[in-house]
Each structure stands twice: as C-alpha cells, then as structure tokens.
Design a protein around this nucleic acid. Structure first.
Length: 866
RNA sequence: GCCGGGGUGGCGGAACUGGUAGACGCGCCGGACUCAAAAUCCGGUUCUGGAAACAGAGUGCGGGUUCGAUUCCCGCCCCCGGCACCA
C-alpha cells in the first residue's frame, strides 16, 4: 500500500535537504550563460500576502526551469524596508519603525522559506541597514559633484494643523487624513535629480527593449512625452512672456494667454490686485496631485496685463488659470480656444474670443464656437484660415512658415519639450535614508565628506504624526561644519524610497562588500535576465532604475546601461467580497473563508451565509485583496493546510501571470486533488512492476499514441515555460497527459517502459511549479539526485509523427464534418474526401460550388452558392 | 481628465500566425463504492430545440473587411492599473 500524499511530512525534510546542500547558492563569478532572475523586493508590511506569493512563485518557476536546463541561476531576496507604513504603525502602536520593520522582516523571511523558493539567502539585504543606505548617500554626493543632483523649490501638500507635509495618499478629498484640515500647497526647498537630461536616451532606448511588454514601453514613452514644438515670445512693456507650444501653426488663433498661479506674472498681478491675489490663494488649497488637478473645474481670472502678439502686434489679455501647470514648459500657454479643448471650454466660460484658424479640406465641416468637435485639433487634410499670409497652408507648411517668421523676428525658436520632470527626492520624513548635507550659517549647504559616511539614522525615535522627529532629535542634528568647523545642523529630509529600489538589484551580487557600492561580481551578473513584478510599477520604479543605472554607468561603476533585459509584469490578486448590512445600511465585510455558498443545479449562487452563525451575507463582487474589504487570503494558513506545493500550483494555474488572478478556495482544492492523484498514480505505476528497456520499434498503436502524447506534452510545456511564460497552460498540459497516462494499459514490460518514460517526464515537467512533490516522486522512481540536477526532458521528434490527422470540413465557413486523413495529403485528395462526407454532401447537395479552400492537414472549406 | 490594459459557459480560464470556440480546472447533475457520510472512481455539462442523429444561436454592444473573425478595422459601453510624496 502506498502512503497517501502528505505534504506536511514530505515537504520539510526536502527543504532541509536543499538547505544542507546549499542548493540555491549562486556562484560569485557566473558562466556566460548564467541566468539572473529577479523579483521586485517586498515592502515588509508584516505578513506575506498573495501578491508576494504569486510574484515569488513566478520567479521561482523560471529560476528552477533555467536550473533544470543546465544554466546556473541567481534568485536573491531583500527588503524595501524604508517607507511610510512603518511610520503609520509607529503612530498607531507607539513602537519604533525600526523595530516594527525588523520584526516584520524576520516573520516574512520565515514565511518565504516555507514556500520552498530557490533563493540564495546569503545575499539578502535590507535598505534600512546602514551598510546599504550609505551607498545611496555616497552616490548622491557624487551626483552633487557632477551637477546631476541640485536644489530647488518644489510643491508639497501641507497640513496646517499637524504642521506636516503629507503624501498624496494622505490627502483625502483635499483634507489631511488625520486632522481633516484643508490641505495647502506649499513651496519648499528640495533636492532633485536631473532625469530630464536623460529623457532622450531613456526614450530612444525603449526601442531596443524587446524583452519588455509593449504596453510598458508605451506607458514609459508617453510618460517621457517628447513634443517637438516652439518656444514663442510674447513681448510686453518691460518684459516678455515665454510659452511653449506644439502647434505654432495655430498662432494666428491665439486670443489670450494663460499662466499658472505660481507664474511670476500671476504673482505680480496678485501684488497689485486683491481679487487676483484671492484667486491665486484659492488655487493653493487642495492636493498637489496631477489626477486631482486634471479633473477639477477650470477656473481663472484676468490679470489686467496684456502682451503683444509676436506677428500681429495685437494686444492679448493675460489670465491666470488653474489648468496651467507650472511644472510643464514655461508655466504659461498661448491659448488657442478655437483648436484646444481646454482653452475652448475656458474661453466659453469667461466669454473670451474664439477664432477658427483650421478648416478641413473636405466640405461639410462647419465650425461651431459653442459645441466642441474632434476635428478642431486635426493635423491632416486641413488648411489654415483666418491666418493672413498663412491662409491655405497645411499643418507642416504652416508650422514651417510661422516658425521662420518668428525666428526672423527673434521671437521664437524651435524646441523639444519633454513631459518628464526632474525627480524630487527630498521627503520630510523620518523613516528613510538621511540626505548627507550639513547646514552651516557661514558656509551654507555643505556635503558630508565621504569619510564621514554613512550619516546614521537614529533608530529609536517614534513619530507622532506631526512633523519629522529628526527635526527634534538633538543627537542627530548637532554636528560640525566640515568646511569651517563651527557648530552646524544636519539636513533632516530623507530620500524618496524609490532611490533605495533604483539599484538594489546591483547590490545582491556583492552585498557583502563594505568597501564599495558594487564590484566586478555586479558586472558579472548584470543585466538582470528576467525581472518580475507588479504592473503598477510600470512607470516610476522602472524608469528611475533605468536612469540610475545610466548614472552609475557613466561613473564607470557598472558596464550596463539597461538594468532589465526581460520584464514580466504580473497581474493583481483578487478575491470575492461578502458583506452584511445593518438596519441603517452600513456594510460589514466578511472574509470569504468564513462564508458558505449555496448553488442551484446550474451552479449559480443562490444564497450565502456565515458558517459561524448562519447569518445571510451578500455578494459584493470581485476585488483586489485588501484590508478595507476584508477579502485577503493568508498564504501561510493555506500552506499550513495544504502544503506549499498546492498553493504554488493553484496560483500558477488559475491565470496567466500577466492577468489578474481570482482567488478561489475551491480552485485550491482542485490543485490539491491533482497532486494527490499524481502521487497515487506514480506510486501505482511503480508497484505495477519493473519496466524493461524501451524498444521503440515494436510498440503497439496504443503505446505509440501514448508516447506521442508524452512528447507533445514535453514540447508544449518547454515552450510554455521557456518562451511564453504561460504556466497555466503548461499545468493544463501536464494534467491532460497524466489523465491519459493513468488510463494507459501498461500490462507488460514494454508498456511499463512507455509509462515509466511518461511519468518521469511529467514529474520533471511539474518540478519547477511543485518542487517538493516532484523531488519525492523522483526519488520514488529510483533516482537519488536532486531534481534540479536531473535535467529537463528532451523531445523525441520521431515520436511526434502522427499516423492520421483530423481535418475539419466547413461549408460556407460552418463546420459540417470531420475526416481522418494521412498527414501531408494532397489538396485534391482532401477535397475529394471532404465532398464524400455524408453530412457535407447534404449541405452541398446540388448547389454550385464556387470555391474550395484547403489548409493542408487542417481544414477544407467548401463555398457554395446561397 | 490624460496614458495603458481588459471584457469568452454558472465560475477561473484555453484557442500562440485569420482556420474545429470553450482545452485544463472549479461548480453542478447522474452513477459506482459505503449501513451512511466524507474521500475516491466513472459518465455528463455553452444556450435553445430534439430520445438521438443533428439543427439554430453564441466570445461586452453596433457596424465593416474576409471563403472564414474571440483574433483585423471603425464607433460605443463597462471594469481595472498609473498619474510623479503609497510601495
């Protein structure tokens, strides 16, 4: 009798075996074909959640697949350990962010170990450790020297009650999350990194990133946002107003100017006119986030200033408008309400004049200055009108002629503008990497000398939500000016956590080096062969990492300029939500694990109740696992119940990695059943007796067909793992093949040999997904070695050849029959055979055959007259 | 608002280059085993009609290209991700 599948008994000893043999240690100096497989490192929030579980299973599957194919592989792990949640936990529980974070790391590390991931733990790092963040500081100082880092004012959300800078996330409906006070925008000095100097390169290099999803490249390209246009000068008494436009061809349609509330002209107007001042002030409340700004109502006020049109000399009024962003272009626009939707809306609201300057070449397009139409912004098949000398020109000729006229007058020049802004890295927060700057009354801002690094973050402070505790920590603040030696104060801002995550992958290969940020081992492993992480990081993190790598490359620290050769963006993990309502309609959300569902004969949900007390609950839809809807499923509990392999199997089977994944307890049961069955079937096979040598020549038709299925499966699964990364279909193929193998009658030595080849193949094919059971079965099949070293099954091409193929027959594109034919049959033979099919003949009858389409070995479509 | 993605049975999904829509799994229905239940095994399962053979319909909605469209094109609806201080 076979012992039933018991993961609680088999998994721990197998993990101990791997650990004792140091199986997952990657070499320091890898061979040329070595594979660097990297997952985005987790924020140590407390517990491993399903998103982590999915992410790390994907990278583990890829790592193990590469290892089984003979390539040395590095799969490291670390902790993105600085950040806001630690401060929130500190506020809520009075514990220091350092302790909270380190406890979380310890807990999550043990959770990861229980999942059997092939991680090289010797290289583990945490960004909150001084031996990591000192290199943030070191590189920041290098950037300052090179002018890549600089200081300038920037806008932040300010909570006037707590006297604290708020993250966008902490601003809810324009109010502070803790105080409810109306949030103000504030200008404060900050450090910036000149990512815009790299805009052209970051954009152009996207074309070569063919290992990245097209959608991520598109998002990055749009984010960088290259626009070719002109800088145009509108002169006025005592100055000139500069604007950037992508449509100089519409210059003759400019009827007013609009400047951002922070623009110098707006300030000047506010200084002499209280109404304008009041308006500018009103623009300073509310969130600084762009999404908020984009949906707010367009408002504005006339400054009373006018500027002269550079070509006509006509006076144009200057307005302050809340839809003009100070951070883009010049913070001022020439408004062409006739052909820009935002200007159009604004002009209609405030009664400003609208002039049509574009007209489609085709007839039937009337211009309506009240109702917006899409063609108003057209560049193709249009001519300029109401534009004086430029009438009749098309877009490019108009652009060219107006550009020349402006250049001739010295009132304009061609320019490329990027939407991308420089990266502000200053955060007015405690739990982050200190910015290594000292403020001296005499010498100003002085960089901390390299020999004094790291600037250590005190770890015993407990923030309370108002201000930055560093600003009250005398032990941290007090220092001497490195230049003049007088008493001075440290900078209390810390760095954006995106700095930490911009280079951690270059540190894993050399995480033990206390003399240098990176070393030759980094070059040996970089670039990352496969990077895996959430789609939500498609723009910011990935763009900053690409920028940071370029900077390090130019400092001769690393050889690579692009950090990630291949990118896989995994979807979110979703789950059902269930709620009950009280008399007042307030909802209470219940975890799906405590809900029992009743279904009708079709399988549709009839009703649901709490298993605890039978109270009825309502279905609230499928949503991202989150605390707010209480629909999180704890991977640790499932691992305890089913073992790591079942949880890994389900999370890879339920959806392809790029799509969102719907968690389902019943689906987990299904995965569990499959493993139980596989365990039983392999043991049944072993008990059926010893196979003899596999002699391919004398196989029965059934045995040959069985072998064909096995090798088709090897073919399919290898492609799914190696090229497509569709683990769900790989698993389906293994399941399908195991269904056939278990039914295959292997009653003699030859049959057993075919079955043995099949089971040994399947066990290895599933090993990257469910490594523990695969290892146990591999040993049961008589192998002593680690399955990682067992090699990947090879396809026997000769086994794939089919005796007969099924060809479908359509009449007018509708399926009417199937015929079996020898492969490689001629068109004529297939046509003939198709027409002889009884059902096909019924539909063709005596109708006139117009055409017959034949796709060899696949399909015949007979087109007949209606 | 802007940028990107998605929508296929009761459910998760498959169909990779325009060629059998629904692989695989869940759920449900029926059967076997059992005193019974669980577990396990066998069969069925897109919808409508039909005992069946088979026929008609069907991939968010409306149109188009094609011998043939889940796949390509145009218009629309809904859902999700990002929007620079959540990570």
């Amino acid at each position: 009798m076979t012992e039933p599948y018991n993961p609680a008994a088999i998994e721990p000893p197998i993990r101990e075996r791997w650990e004792a043999a140091n199986s997952f240690r990657a070499p320091d100096q890898p061979r040329a074909d070595a594979f660097y497989c990297l997952s985005m490192f987790p924020y140590p929030s407390g517990h491993l959640h399903m998103g982590h579980m999915r992410n790390y299973t994907i990278s583990d599957v890829i790592t193990r697949f590469q290892r089984m194919n003979g390539r040395p592989a590095l799969q490291p792990m670390g902790w993105d350990a600085f950040g806001l949640p630690a401060e929130n936990a500190a506020i809520a529980r009075g514990v220091s962010p350092a302790k909270w974070t380190r406890d979380n790391i310890a807990h999550m590390r043990s959770q990861l170990r229980e999942l059997g991931f092939a991680i090289d733990w010797d290289r583990e790092l945490a960004t909150c450790n001084p031996d990591y963040y000192r290199w943030n500081q070191w590189l920041f100082l290098k950037m300052l020297e090179r002018g890549i880092a600089y200081k300038q004012t920037g806008t932040v959300n300010w909570d006037p009650e707590d006297q604290t800078v708020l993250a966008n996330e902490q601003v809810i409906d324009g109010k502070g999350w803790r105080t409810g006070a109306v949030v103000e925008k504030r200008e404060i000095p900050m450090y910036y990194l000149r990512i815009t100097d790299y805009a052209e390169d970051l954009l152009a290099a996207l074309d070569d990133l063919d290992g990245w999803p097209e959608r991520v490249r598109a998002m990055q390209a749009n984010w960088i946002g290259k626009s070719i246009g002109m800088e145009i000068v509108f002169p006025y008494e005592g100055g000139e107003l500069k604007v950037f436009t992508t449509r100089p061809d519409t210059l003759m349609g400019a009827t007013y100017m609009a400047v951002a509330p922070e623009h110098p002209l707006a300030r000047a107007a506010a200084g002499r006119d209280d109404t304008v001042a009041e308006f500018v002030r009103s623009c300073s409340t509310g969130s600084a986030s762009e999404a908020e700004l984009a949906v707010q109502e367009k408002r504005g006020i006339d400054t009373g200033f006018t500027v002269r049109h550079p070509l006509t000399g006509q006076n144009l009024p200057v307005w302050v408008a809340n839809y003009v962003l100070m951070g883009y272009g010049e913070g001022a626009i020439m408004a062409v309400p006739g052909h820009d939707e935002r200007d159009f809306e604004f002009a209609n609201k405030y009664g400003l004049s609208i002039v049509q300057v574009i007209q489609p070449e085709a007839d039937g397009h009337d211009y309506d200055p009240v109702e917006w139409q899409d063609w108003y912004t057209a560049k193709e098949n249009v001519r300029l009108v109401n534009s004086g000398d430029y009438d009749g020109l098309d877009y490019s000729a108009g652009f060219e002629a107006i550009a020349r006229a402006l250049e001739h007058k010295g009132l304009g020049s061609r320019r490329t503008q990027f939407r991308l802004r420089d990266w502000g890295i200053s955060r007015q927060r405690y739990w982050g990497c200190p910015i290594p700057i000292i403020h001296c009354d005499d010498c100003g801002d002085v960089p901390v000398p390299e020999r004094d690094l790291p600037v250590m973050l005190p770890e015993d402070l407990v923030p309370d939500g108002s201000g930055n505790p560093l600003a009250r920590c005398e032990a941290f603040l007090a220092c001497e000016c490195p230049k003049c030696g007088k008493p001075a104060r440290r900078e209390t801002d810390t760095m954006d956590t995106f700095v930490d995550s911009s280079w951690y992958y270059m540190r894993y290969p050399c995480s033990d080096n206390d003399q240098a940020m990176v070393d030759e081992r980094t070059n040996a492993w970089m670039p990352v062969d496969q990077y895996i992480g959430g789609i939500e990081h498609a723009i910011l993190h990935l763009l900053y990492a690409r920028f940071w790598t370029r900077v390090m490359n130019e400092m001769d620290l690393v050889e690579t300029r692009e950090p990630f050769a291949n990118l896989l963006t995994q979807g979110m993990v979703l789950a059902e939500t269930w709620y009950g309502e009280d008399e007042r309609g307030r909802k209470t959300w219940f975890n799906p694990s405590g809900v029992e569902v009743e279904r009708d004969a079709r399988g549709r949900i009839v009703s649901a109740k709490l298993s605890e007390d039978g109270r009825p609950v309502q279905f609230g839809g499928i949503e991202k696992m989150a605390k707010s809807k209480n629909n999180g499923v704890d991977p640790a509990a499932l691992v305890a119940q089913y073992g790591a392999d079942t949880v890994r199997l389900f999370s890879m089977f339920a959806a392809p990695p790029e799509q969102s994944l719907e968690w389902s307890d019943a689906g987990v049961e299904g995965a569990w059943r499959f493993l139980k069955r596989l365990w039983q079937q392999v043991h049944d096979h072993i008990e059926a007796g010893a196979p003899c040598e596999l002699a391919i020549a004398g196989l029965s038709d059934e045995a040959r067909e069985m072998r064909r299925r096995v090798h088709e499966t090897i073919n399919k699964v290898s492609d799914d793992f190696g090229r497509r990364y569709t683990f769900n279909t790989a698993i389906a193929a293994v399941m399908e093949c195991s269904n056939h193998l278990s039914r295959f009658k292997a009653d003699d030595g030859t049959g057993l040999a075919v079955a043995r080849e099949g089971w040994e193949s399947l066990v290895r094919l599933i090993a990257p997904i469910t490594p523990h059971i695969a290892q146990a079965l591999w040993q049961a099949l008589g192998h002593e070695d680690d399955i990682l070293a067992a090699g990947w099954p090879e396809v026997d091409e000769s086994a794939l050849v089919q005796q007969r193929v099924t060809v479908v027959v359509q009449v007018n594109g509708k399926l009417r029959g199937r015929i079996a034919a020898p492969p490689g049959g001629s068109r004529e033979a297939l046509q003939q055979q198709a027409l002889e099919d009884e059902n096909v003949a019924r539909f063709v009858a005596d109708k006139e055959i117009r055409k017959i389409i034949v796709v060899p070995d696949k399909l015949v479509n007979i087109v007949v007259a209606a």
